[in-house]
Design a protein around this nucleic acid. Structure first.
Length: 821
RNA sequence: GCCCCGAUAGCCCAAUGGCAGAGGCAGACGACUUAAAAUCGUCACAGUGUGGGUUCGAGUCCCACUCGGGGCACCA
């Protein structure tokens, strides 16, 4: 116990004590406390912790510690998302073994987390690159495969020329690689997919159950991403072709206005239709196809691009009107959405109109929206209106016409009601080394053969001797000892699948692995899942709003269908913390505005940094490090610490004999603090601690003095509250107050309701909404009494001279408002 | 272009439809000190981005706009 407050001394003092105390062990036998599962998104071990981690873990810790001190058995685990490109790229650059590099970083992060006083249960650590973990990744893959949820297909996939690997749709941002910002190109490859589209409806509809529990922003982003739209699949007969072509439309009401058809230039259908056309069409089409393949996604996504296309020399028959319409190929139609072909209604679709204008195609108006006739103006009208020129649909309003059109099509067996999604299946193959091997063997005779469960895990071969340089094919393809195996079915020569899984597979179920992180029998123990899951509180950055959260939700639903879990949503509540900025922009070495966490910790101490993170503002807002003051946080902690030092009563003193005023301050603090923390208003929670500290200081210096038992009560609750933000300081305060180490397990006193009631209250009197007088009244004053007091007040009677009060609103005991004419 | 979120003091931020200020930073002044730091205390500072509306009463609810941030965007 020192005379002066020194955070670095407290760190050295308490860290070893905690190591032996293990306050955050969540698997104590016979623990009867109710459970709470609090989870921080696990980190990538690509170096030491940075300011962003410091914020995330500070906030996650506030929540975890709060529930512990509310008497819950809190499971707050941590692990590492240890496979993946950053580790592999860094390893390539330094010529090191990615395994060694990864584990070294993990050790460094782990020791930084301990110093940072994270309340993690260190007996539940996992690393996704451990065979004991990815064995179950592979097991899950095979379970998905059994259920038809993992399949291989050849298609034009997103390809990052820099990472030299394919990317999932979700990893392409504005046509750029999510990781390295390189322009993504297309490549035809046979790859593994997870059939997430089978779950599109559930993934979308169940978002409703998360309303109010997840940030609106995330819910909106997920809804947009899934992008369900309703309409019809309509069959068009093709002249000189046996099979009709089906198109998806959300506007079957405009079917009579379809004046041409467009098929995606890069679709098989386009090639087929062109191949059976004239030689000149064939030439023109294939040269157009070549050109479209050159166009990058960036250019393709530009909405103001000139429409281009080729007439295929073929005709389709409008199923309702019987008209023949020309078929065009263009790159404005996407091959992998709907059926890759559309009916073009230029009068009522902007894009089709642009194409019709570019190619001088006819426009037929079929909806009168009251705007200028699009067949004259050549400007599309997409709004509501009355259908015209459309046979049996004529005269109906849009919605009715859509229904009627679908009925007609279904009757004639020319179409069906249909839904479509923006969401695509999840491409999980990656042509990289540092990932989970895909447990499939390719045999010339037997085709795809799953690796038998007894042979799992398929271990990743040692990287020594392998060329990890990205070259477009998996480095594992060169590990011939590993690659060449006997087919499990026929025993003949076969090869392993040499791609590895997207690391988002690893992170889609890790929250369940924490329940039994070392189990060799299960991916996770179902009994433990029943006890702990789902996650009660998830904390992480909004950067994962789509990818990780969508995939985890998908996995959870599949596991539900496998009857391995009894819930359909993995994360009951979600808190997104903001980012830590410096001078308005994200920190980066190249911008020269990098703030080093280790330097901040050395300069100000762990507690001051943690407190600063919590106090800076609402957790979901970004923190600009230029706007905050860790030094001020340190000052406050010293001030609070001195309160504990100045308490001179004995532990266990009878609080009933203490100052009522101080007791009231303490208990109203407890009520306000609880409300603030449970509402994620950590900044307000800290402010309440400051308020109580100020009140206690005043009581000690110029009030009842440090010997009053009520001051002790206040100081003890203050120590517990501060423990959420500044555990070292709080632990020392706890000791100063005469307690054994373990403030993290000391539960908050329950609020004594009678200490919250005020006997007197300041009533305010308004005239026409403006404050005119105030006076002290009994808190139990009646409305009539308060009303007459207000009307009798000299200040008010003076004001009311010559005016007529028309209405007197009384809200006892707080307010009277007199409305005058 | 569409959708979402935000705008309160010099700054960061509080405020169940009821006194605009809980807390902090920066500032001024005072106490302690030979002096300074540290500490303790006191004080000052805005009428809530703009314009309308609802209400006895609006920072808070509604409408329009401005600015800032984010998401989606050739998905038929």
């Amino acid at each position: 116990m020192s005379e002066e407050f020194s955070l670095s001394a407290l760190q050295d003092k308490w860290l070893p004590v905690w190591d032996s105390l293990k306050p955050f062990d969540s698997a104590k036998p016979g623990d009867e406390r109710p459970k709470k599962y609090v989870l921080d998104m696990f980190p990538y071990p690509s170096g030491d912790l940075h300011m962003g981690h410091a914020e995330a873990y500070a906030l996650g810790d506030v929540i975890a510690r709060y529930w512990m001190q509310k008497g819950f058995n809190v499971m707050h685990p941590i692990g590492w998302d240890a496979f993946g490109l950053p580790a592999e790229n860094a390893a390539i650059k330094r010529g090191l073994d990615p395994r060694k590099w990864t584990y070294e970083n993990i050790e460094q992060q782990k020791s930084s987390m301990r110093r940072y006083a994270c309340s993690f249960d260190w007996d539940r650590v996992l690393q996704t690159c451990d065979p004991i973990y990815y064995r179950w990744n592979q097991w899950l893959f095979l379970e998905f495969y059994k259920r038809g949820l993992a399949y291989r297909k050849n298609s034009n996939v997103n390809w990052c020329p820099s990472c030299q690997t394919v990317l999932a749709n979700e990893q392409v941002v504005q046509g750029l690689c999510e990781r390295c910002d390189t322009q993504v190109t297309k490549k035809a490859l046979t790859q593994w997919y997870f059939k997430v589209t089978d779950y599109a409806d559930r993934l979308l509809d169940d978002l409703d159950t998360l309303e109010g529990k997840w940030p609106t922003k995330v819910l909106t982003m997920q809804r947009n991403w899934i992008g369900r739209s309703y309409g019809a699949n309509v069959q068009f007969e093709i002249v000189n072709r046996k099979e009709p072509v089906t198109v998806f439309t959300t506007r079957p009401d405009t079917l009579y206005g379809a004046t041409f058809m467009v098929v995606a230039a890069d679709s098989d259908l386009a090639s087929e239709l062109a191949s059976e056309s004239d030689a000149s069409v064939r030439m023109e089409f294939f040269s157009y196809l070549e050109k479209t393949k050159q166009v990058s996604d960036i250019d393709r996504l530009a909405t103001d691009r000139e429409k281009t296309g080729v007439f295929l020399g073929r005709y389709a028959v409008n199923p309702l009107s019987g008209e023949q319409i020309p078929i065009w190929a263009s790159d404005y139609v996407l091959a992998d959405y709907g059926t890759g072909a559309i009916m073009a209604v230029p009068a009522h679709d902007e894009r089709d109109m642009a194409f019709a204008n570019a190619m001088q195609l006819p426009v037929l108006t079929v909806v009168d929206t009251g705007e200028e006739d699009p067949s004259v103006s050549r400007i599309a009208t997409a709004g509501d209106g009355v259908v015209v020129n459309s046979g049996p649909l004529t005269g109906l309003k849009k919605d009715k016409a859509i229904e009627k059109a679908i009925e007609l099509l279904e009757e004639k067996k020319l179409g069906l009601r249909a839904k479509n999604y923006r969401l695509r299946d999840w491409l999980i193959s990656r042509q990289r080394y540092w990932g989970s091997p895909i447990p499939i063997i390719h045999c010339e005779k037997c085709g795809e053969v799953p690796v038998p469960e007894s042979e799992l895990p398929v271990l990743l071969p040692d990287s020594a001797g392998l060329d990890l340089q990205p070259k477009g094919t998996s480095p594992l393809g060169a590990a011939s000892d590993w690659l060449n195996v006997a087919c499990p079915t026929c025993g003949g020569a076969a090869k392993r699948d040499s791609d590895t899984m997207d690391t988002f597979v690893d992170s889609s179920w890790y929250f369940l692995r924490f329940l039994s992180p070392n189990s060799e029998k299960h991916a996770f123990d179902p009994a433990e899942a029943k006890k702990w899951a789902p996650v009660d509180q998830y904390v992480g950055g909004v950067t994962h709003a789509i990818l990780h959260l969508l995939y985890s939700r998908f996995f959870t639903k599949v596991l539900y269908d496998m009857k391995l879990v009894d819930f359909e949503e993995p994360f009951s509540r979600l808190l997104n913390q903001g980012m830590v900025l410096m001078n308005g922009s994200a920190m980066s070495k190249s911008r020269g505005n990098l703030v080093r966490l280790s330097e901040q910790l050395d300069e100000h101490g762990v507690d001051a940094i943690r407190l600063t993170m919590a106090f800076a503002g609402p957790p979901e807002d970004d923190i600009d490090w230029a706007d905050v003051s860790p030094a001020a946080s340190g000052k406050f902690l010293a001030r609070a610490w001195r309160i504990a030092k100045d308490v001179s009563s004995d532990p266990g003193s009878d609080v009933q004999t203490g100052s009522l005023e101080v007791r009231k301050a303490t208990h109203s603090f407890l009520a306000a603090f609880t409300e603030a923390i449970e509402g994620f208003k950590f900044n307000v929670g800290v402010a309440k601690c400051m308020e109580l500290t100020n009140a206690l200081r005043k009581a000690i210096d110029s009030g009842v003095g440090g010997g009053d038992p009520a001051v002790r009560e206040g100081a003890e609750e203050l120590a517990k509250a501060i423990s959420l933000f500044a555990p070292y300081t709080a632990e020392d305060m706890w000791e100063l107050l005469g307690h054994k180490p373990g403030v993290a397990l000391a539960t908050f006193r329950s609020v004594e309701a009678d200490l919250l009631v005020q006997e007197t209250i300041t009533a305010i009197v308004q005239v026409d909404g403006k404050l005119r007088d105030k006076f002290e009244v009994s808190a139990s004053i009646s409305e009539a009494e308060l009303r007459s007091l207000a009307l009798a007040s000299p200040a008010i009677t003076r004001l009311l001279e010559g005016k007529q009060p028309v209405n007197v609103i009384v809200r006892a005991p707080k307010l009277v408002n007199i409305a005058t004419k």
